[in-house]
Write a protein that binds this DNA or RNA. Structure first.
Lengths: 277, 277
DNA sequence: ATCAACGTTCCGTCTCCCGGAACGAATGCA
DNA sequence: TGCATTCGTTCCGGGAGACGGAACGTTGAT
């Protein structure tokens, strides 16, 4: 039996920074609403967000009135049509994603591995879109999932493209939690590996985050060398083996370079556009 | 003095129901943030949402602190990583979408036309996901886009599956705006067409919404005959011509039926699940 | 029959949301 | 180069409405 490792991310405990204003609380509820185990019950949403039950109830009412939540039978709630529309618009409108999509498909076809694009959110990488291979082996990576920067290929790729001071700040000074025996736990060691990553142009995650999973990633740079995200491929170690890394690495680097070039050339996100509108 | 009409061409007055609470306003800002013309300037967001400038500024600050917005150079803003993550999670978690995706791909391959899935949001249909053909002809349908129910195939499909009283309420009593010379403007006429749609199992939009565009759609029903959305194909009239409708219609109907069946059988969205997490 | 847990409503307190006015900076025009 | 807009941003006093503990009716399990 192939173990269905679907650990998209940690159970995602409620935000360490407690939501203070009504907007933050509403965002927390929205975040809980889109979790995969719909439909959601009020008590579960309250527990997940860490908010009092009446507060969640009132927020859900507001969200439902606006079409962002939909009440189901038995007092349950799930994502509403406006939320789905918002999501679809957001993913369709992002220039990074629009440009990355065809590149990911091409990369997936040429490598045979799952290709994905991730962006940085604080100290974690969020997987925003991906191109799934029709493989029989399930790779533990889901859209919307999160992985810490310090133990992922996309994380290392983005860290390598950031100013060293910023990277050091994101890594912190304390030893990092071990996810597998191979996890690099010393922030200094991660930083020390960055020059090599920069020189090669791609980063390799050798079972840092999960057993039997290897990944390769390269940074995507927008206008002004802003780090827009990272392109990567993920595979099980016996499929994505050590010898193939030397072949696949440059392909990933080239894919990320293609997205970067489109980002700069095509639609400059920088405020240099002079023309009207 | 030459009147400097440099404001956006379409005045496009905003929310019919003015945003009252802070949550509604924040949602309006989010909605404006994901529009395709990023990066957005504060004044544009204020104009689009109809909110005062300082209010938008404060909300953007809150959203930025939470990672849902990102300030760019020159005081611009765009969708932040949390928002992209939320969007990716929402689309990946929705059972309708997860089930519809492969069906849409299959439908697209077999018909050669753009296949899409839409849900109802009040009196409009929102296109949530789609499977694009590699056609040279651009069909005017974008993810996140909206079309009124009364003049679209997906709209008619969903109306046909709703209780007639509900459908009548959604259509209203007044004559509907004409989008093309062929638009059916009489709510009564639309209602009168529903029985035929129900019998055939699919609806046809014959240039009701846009010149030279034809569409076919069928309703998707969830547990308890709840209208979950509609599956449809869209094409230019000279590609998706009248003769092919009789052939393509049943294919669309079958595709929608497949999604409906999966929705009921696979993951019951009904609150019958008893098991503890 | 008993009990626990859930969704929902109520309401007094007081937080913090609100947006007009004002200011410095950047840009377009003459 | 100088002027006129328009932008993003900050300030602040008034008051709208968010807040959540307590309570209630109901449901499902024991």
């Amino acid at each position: 039996m192939p173990k269905p490792v679907n650990t998209s991310a940690a159970p995602r405990e409620e935000s360490p920074a407690a939501a203070t204003g009504p907007v933050d609380k509403a965002l927390a509820v929205l975040d809980a609403l889109v979790q995969p185990d719909a439909p959601h019950r009020l008590a579960d949403l309250a527990a997940r967000t860490g908010l009092p039950k009446p507060t969640v109830h009132r927020l859900l009412h507001t969200l439902a009135e606006a079409g962002y939540a939909v009440p189901g039978p038995g007092g349950t709630y799930q994502a509403g049509p406006r939320l789905l529309g918002l999501a679809a618009t957001a993913l369709a409108a992002s220039s990074e994603l629009r440009l990355a999509r065809p590149v990911l498909d091409d990369l997936r076809l040429r490598t045979g591995h799952l290709a994905h694009f991730s962006v940085r959110d604080g100290t974690v990488a969020v997987h925003v879109t991906q191109s799934d291979p029709s493989s029989t082996y399930r790779v533990p990576l889901a859209a919307g999932g999160e992985v810490p920067l310090y133990c992922s290929a996309v994380g290392w790729a983005m860290l390598s493209a950031l100013p060293p001071a910023t990277a050091a700040e994101l890594l912190g000074a304390d030893p990092l939690p071990a996810r597998t025996p191979r996890t690099v736990r010393d922030p200094g060691a991660v930083l020390a590996a960055m020059p090599a990553v920069r020189e090669r142009g791609y980063a390799v995650d050798d079972e840092y985050a999960e057993q039997d999973v290897r990944a390769i990633a390269a940074p995507v740079l927008g206008p002004g060398d802003r780090v827009a995200g990272a392109v990567g491929i993920v595979g099980l170690t016996f499929t994505l083996d050590e010898e193939s890394v030397a072949v696949l690495g440059p392909m990933v680097r080239a894919a990320a370079g293609a997205v970067s070039a489109s980002l700069r050339g095509g639609a400059g996100a920088l405020g240099i556009v002079r023309g009207r509108r």
